Simulated assay, not measured.
Amino acid sequence: MLDDMRVLRDAVREYRVTATAAGLDWPDQVESPVGQPPDVVYQVFGVDHIAEQLTWLQSQRWPDRHLLPNVGWRMPWPEGGDALDYLTLLRARQRECGVNMAIVEDGFEHTEELSDAIDAAKASLDA
């Protein structure tokens, strides 16, 4: 299970070997120390504790692009006092635009559709 940090680190190491063998550019760097998320992260998610696995993944200095399986990428921690307001506004705009966040659990076949819908909702916030 990936909730064991040793297993998570091994899984990432194995994935990296496979990804680079397939031609994916993944920087060769040592593991970064685990940092703490900004205080606003606890507020955004309404929790008192952030999982060690997430803080470890966020601490790694991987590029912000699609590195992970199923077109996954690492999003930066939300920062600043406006993060919660922005997230709330984004979720409301996604609902208005018809983004069905429930399909996240349906897997890869909906990833592109969901990504496009989220990008459109984000663009509408910037307009």
Rank of each mutant, 00 (worst) to 15 (best):
H49N: 11
G81D: 14
Q58W: 07
Y15I: 04
V7L: 12
G35N: 13
G35S: 15
V99T: 08
A51M: 10
A21I: 07
H110T: 08
P33D: 06
G35M: 12
R74Q: 14
R74V: 13
E96P: 01
V30E: 15
A22I: 03
P69W: 03
A123Q: 13
M5I: 14
R95S: 07
A11P: 02
L90I: 00
D10L: 12
L54N: 12
V7D: 09
E52D: 14
E31P: 00
V34W: 03
V41Y: 05
H66Y: 13
P63I: 02
Q36M: 13
L57F: 08
G46L: 01
V104W: 09
T20G: 01
E31T: 05
L68P: 00
L90Q: 00
I118M: 01
A19T: 07
A83I: 09
D106I: 03
I50S: 00
H110E: 12
N100M: 07
L57H: 09
V41Q: 00
F45C: 04
L68C: 04
R13D: 15
L89T: 05
R95Y: 02
E14A: 15
G35T: 15
A19R: 03
A117N: 08
D85S: 06
A51S: 12
A83T: 05
S124K: 14
W26D: 02
R6K: 14
D28C: 03
W56C: 02
R6C: 08
Q36I: 09
V47N: 01
A21N: 15
V17L: 15
E31H: 00
D48A: 12
R13T: 15
D116W: 07
T55M: 11
Q94Y: 00
R65Q: 14
P69V: 08
G107S: 06
G35A: 14
V47L: 03
P78L: 06
D106K: 13
L2E: 08
R91C: 02
A92V: 12
N70M: 10
L89R: 00
V7G: 03
A127P: 01
S115V: 06
W56D: 06
G72A: 09
E109F: 09
L87W: 02
E52R: 15
D126I: 15
F108E: 13
G107E: 05
D28G: 07
T20P: 00
V47C: 05
